[in-house]
Design a protein around this nucleic acid. Structure first.
Lengths: 339, 339
DNA sequence: TTGTAAGCGTTATCAT
DNA sequence: ATGATAACGCTTACAA
């Protein structure tokens, strides 16, 4: 900018005034300055501006795994929304690791991000302290956080799984396997509650050996399914509370020589774009990813626009059961087995 | 930092020296300073540091669509690599739009990113100018760029498609539909060349009506497939040069009342994690996503570490044909049709 | 070993 | 309408 000012024979203040329209500058000087800007190819340095202004027009976004289709979509929507608003987004993946998340959030805060969207992991205590210290607005995505009272966008997970399990029960299933991630994060906790609630509402017993915990990855779904199917009294249906793990479930079913839905019914949380093209067409609980991403972005954008004092807004969205052909009435299963 | 200095009754220079280990400071002062840092909860401001140092420890990454599974994986790998190295990554999605890409790269450059990884889109001329002006290292990912002579990681696309089409030909297919994105980007151009080369090598004619151009999205694959299948002389196999479009192809096959592989064989570029679990199990060309992401990251990290003068390094990786069951010998197709 | 002070590229206040 | 100048928070000669 100094170069521009010199070339145009004006002061830097005038250049700044012109660029930002913060004061009126005469036509002659305007022209000289614009010419100089073109000649030199001047671009305003956003870092210096940030230092002075105290704002970076950058937000931080942290999710557990970007390869989880749910997060892929949500990240995509959020990124687009901020791009439209002229914000940059720094993306971090915590890999479901608490310390990693910790480091990443500090890294983002050090870089003076104007706001944070976080799908947290693990214990919320540290997150709470970080968020309290930092003076930036935070929106919690997908996962609520005990003690952190801030804008939130989550699904009604309990209700969604209740519906799915009830559907399975109505199909005649009595022994329904349930594969979940560690329940220290709210969605896993709430989904499990939905499972228990549905069984309870139907007057069915809860068989603890049918509940398996994994670490969110395909391999965990594989192992959990293997264990359940190797038992002498295997379930007639399996619900996976997490999207990547259901791939493992399907591989285990295949490897053990069974097939879905003939021998075992399968349903899972989170929809796939290809769900209704390949066989079996998985019955899933679809989350409104577009809405989730947009709401999260809007909530933060609203705070960024200056609305700091509004009380925390908690959005609870509804899932939708997408019934396809991966779950069969239990009668049909009995037939195919006896055939 | 000023606060810390005051609280510890030292100068800011001493605080800085201690934090950065850039000079030795006496035990007494060290202790006082560390105490003050804890008391105040001081965190170094990375923006101010960046302004002074001229480096942000942040890189920019732009891809067309993060929802394209290939890019999802590559972005994930790259993000992890830079996270390990203490870098933040700003992610942008161009949506295959030239102007968007333009704006985003400028936005990243304004923010003084230390380097850029770009899976470019459209005409390379503007990209070239931008890259020349900016004084940051750039690595080109997935797509080379005429005139931009810099580090590059791409696949041997022509060879990969040649292999896939040859496989189809050996199965007995003669009329092979080909669905591609606009060929102004190198992978699409090279893959098409592989298609033509394979037909030519087998002495087969190239039927231009079997080559359809789409815009990379599922809907484009759908439309292209619909058109081909509605013709009186439809192909016996379809190859989709792009991953999202093959979902459209499968939907079109279903909607038109045909089935794969019984009525028509399908193969495509880019592998899916679930390819060998659902039916039909798609035959695909798998890219070494892990290697691609790591190499791109390493190339940039190496430049960032100071190796600026090495000549541009061009990495050409090999694809792998994953043969599954979505392609049938033509004889079998004839049988199932006559049956 | 420690402190003083200049400077990174902006914006903003206050004279002129 | 324009310009001089301080300030944002840091690093780094250089001086003490």
């Amino acid at each position: 900018m100094l170069h521009v000012a010199e070339a145009a024979r004006v002061s830097v203040a005038t250049v700044s005034a012109l660029i930002n329209g913060t004061a009126t500058v005469s036509p002659e000087l305007s022209q000289r300055i614009e010419q100089a800007i073109r000649d030199i190819g001047y671009k305003r340095n956003a870092i210096a501006r940030s230092l002075k202004m105290g704002t970076t027009r950058t937000i931080g976004l942290t999710v557990p795994h970007i390869t989880n289709p749910f997060f892929t979509d949500v990240v995509s929507v959020i990124q687009q929304a901020f791009d439209r608003a002229g914000y940059a987004v720094m993306l971090c993946c915590t890999d479901e690791d608490l310390n990693t998340q910790d480091d990443q959030i500090r890294l983002l805060l050090d870089r003076m991000v104007d706001g944070l969207i976080v799908a947290r992991v693990g214990d919320g205590a540290i997150l709470k302290r970080i968020v309290d210290d930092a003076n930036v607005p935070v929106v919690l995505l997908d996962r609520i956080c005990e003690g952190v009272d801030t804008d939130t966008v989550v699904l009604d997970n309990q209700r969604a799984v209740f519906d799915a399990i009830t559907y399975l029960i109505n199909l005649g299933h009595r022994r329904i396997g349930y594969i979940t991630g560690t329940s220290d994060i709210s969605p896993m906790h709430d989904r499990m509650a939905g499972y228990r609630e549905a069984l309870h509402a139907a007057g069915l017993p809860i068989a603890e050996e049918l509940i398996r915990f994994g670490n969110f990855h395909e391999i965990d779904g594989y192992n959990a399914t293997m264990q359940m199917l190797s038992s002498h009294d295997r379930p007639s249906a399996i619900f996976s509370a997490n999207n990547p793990m259901v791939i493992g479930t399907m591989k285990a079913i295949r490897d053990i020589g069974l097939s879905c839905p003939e021998d075992i019914s399968v349903a899972c949380f989170d929809d796939f774009p290809w769900s209704d093209v390949f066989q079996p067409q998985l019955t899933t609980v679809a989350q409104p990813v577009q809405a989730i991403g947009e709401q999260a972005a809007n909530l933060l954008l609203d705070r960024l626009a200056g609305n700091r004092d509004a009380p925390p807004r908690k959005l609870l969205l509804k899932g939708r059961l997408m019934i396809r052909n991966s779950c069969r009435p239990l009668g049909a299963i009995a037939q195919s087995v006896s055939a």
